[in-house]
Simulated scan of single mutants.
Amino acid sequence: MNEAEERLRRWRLVLGPEAADGVGVTPEGRDRRIDESLEALYGGGEGRRGGLGASAPNVARWLGDIREYFPAPVVQVMQRDAIERLDLTRLLLEPELLDAVEPDVRLVGTLLSLAKVLPEKARESARAVVRKVVADLEARLADRTRAAVRGALDRAARASRPRPSDIDWDRTIRANLRHYLPERRTVVPERLVGHGRKSRAVEREVILCLDQSGSMASSVVYAGLFGAVLASLPTLKTSVVAFDTAVVDLTERLHDPVDVLFGTRLGGGTDINRALAYCQGLVSRPERTVLVLVSDLFEGGDRGQMLARAAALVRSGVQVIALLALSDDGAPAHDHATAEALAALEIPAFACTPDAFPELLAAALQRLPLPVP
C-alpha cells in the first residue's frame, strides 16, 4: 500500500462509514473490525449513539476487540468515553467486564465510586483491577518517594555539633575547603557536619487529608498510595484522613493501599472545616508536622470557620499545604476565592503531579521553600 492509499485508509477509519463515498475506501479484514469497534462507540449522524448493546457479553467482546487493535493509552481513552457516552457504569458491575478492561487510575476512581453497590461476584474482580493499578503506581513512585523523604529527614536531623562517631567527614571536608592550609596540606574544620543520629524514633509527622468529592477521584487514588508508602518509613508518623460531610480515619489500613482505597467513598459532599478539626486533634508536635489538604476547596460547610481553623494550625507551627489536585489531569477546577484566602494565611494552594510530590514533601519536611509548579 502506497503512502496516498494509507492516508485514505486512515481518514476512512477516522471519519467512519458516512465518509465512505468521499474517501472511496471500504475497510476489509482487520480494518473492518477496527471500523466496527469505533462505530459502536462514536456512531455517526447527529444524535446517534453507539451500538454496544445493553448486555455485558456485547461490551466484553467490544473491550476485547479494542485491546487487540489499539495501544493501551488509546484503549483507556475509549473506555472512559464509553463510560461517559454510553452509560456503561452499571455494566461495570459485571465481573466479566472487569476482567476485560485495561486498568488505569480513572477506572479505579469509577470502581471506588461503585464500591458500595458492587455485587459479591464483582468485588474480587474490582479489587484485582485496583491492585494491578496500585502495583504499577508503586513501581513508578514508591522508591523515589522513600528516597526523597529519607534524604529530607536525614538532612533535617543532621547535627551542627556532632559526636565524633556521628561526623560526616565527606560533607565536613567539602564544607571547609576554604580553610585548606597548603603548607600543612590539611583542612581546618571550623564547622563539623554530622550524620543524622541513627534512630527509629519518629522525626516528623505527615497528615494527608483527602477530599472524597467525585471530582477528586484520581487525587484520592494517588494520595492513598503515597500514604501507604510513607507509612512504611519508621521515622515518619503518617496519618490518612478522608472526608465528605463526615470524616473517616484510614490510618489503620495503611499496611495495604488497596484497603485504603476501598475505605474511601467517592462522590459525597464536602465539609473541609470538619476534616481540619479532626486533623487538629491528630497533631502532637506542630512544629514537626506537615498537613497536606488534597481538595478543590469547594466548601460545603462553614467557610469562615474553616479559614479560621486553617489559620490556627499555621499559628501553632503546622506547615499546611493545599493541593488542588494530586493527579496528571492538568489545571483543576477549584474555588479561586478560597485558594486566595488560604494564600493570604501563608498556605500555598496549587496542583501537583504525582511525579513531583516526593520532592514537594521532602522540601516541606525540611521547611524549605516549596517547589511550586
Score class of each variant (00 low, 15 high):
residue 301 G to Q: 12
residue 24 G to C: 05
residue 259 D to Y: 05
residue 187 V to S: 07
residue 208 L to D: 06
residue 106 R to N: 09
residue 368 L to S: 11
residue 239 S to N: 12
residue 233 L to Y: 07
residue 67 R to P: 01
residue 82 A to M: 14
residue 321 I to P: 02
residue 129 V to R: 00
residue 132 K to T: 14
residue 331 A to L: 14
residue 325 A to H: 05
residue 84 E to C: 07
residue 370 L to C: 06
residue 309 R to S: 14
residue 222 Y to D: 02
residue 124 E to M: 11
residue 64 G to D: 04
residue 307 L to Q: 10
residue 163 R to L: 07
residue 371 P to I: 06
residue 79 Q to M: 12
residue 209 C to V: 15
residue 270 T to S: 11
residue 140 R to G: 12
residue 222 Y to I: 09
residue 101 V to G: 06
residue 11 W to P: 00
residue 300 G to D: 01
residue 34 I to A: 00
residue 213 S to N: 08
residue 204 R to M: 13
residue 269 G to P: 05
residue 340 E to K: 15
residue 6 E to A: 13
residue 67 R to F: 06
residue 369 P to L: 07
residue 91 L to D: 01
residue 20 A to L: 14
residue 166 D to E: 15
residue 95 P to F: 03
residue 112 L to D: 03
residue 83 I to A: 08
residue 157 A to W: 02
residue 52 L to E: 05
residue 57 P to S: 07
residue 370 L to R: 01
residue 129 V to F: 02
residue 3 E to V: 09
residue 245 T to R: 08
residue 101 V to P: 08
residue 24 G to H: 08
residue 33 R to S: 00
residue 30 R to L: 13
residue 176 N to G: 04
residue 8 L to N: 11
residue 133 V to D: 10
residue 338 T to I: 15
residue 23 V to T: 02
residue 338 T to H: 05
residue 347 I to Q: 05
residue 149 V to D: 02
residue 34 I to N: 00
residue 69 Y to M: 06
residue 7 R to C: 04
residue 153 L to S: 13
residue 70 F to K: 09
residue 115 A to S: 15
residue 13 L to S: 01
residue 205 E to H: 15
residue 370 L to Q: 02
residue 222 Y to M: 13
residue 92 L to P: 00
residue 224 G to R: 10
residue 120 E to Y: 08
residue 226 F to R: 04
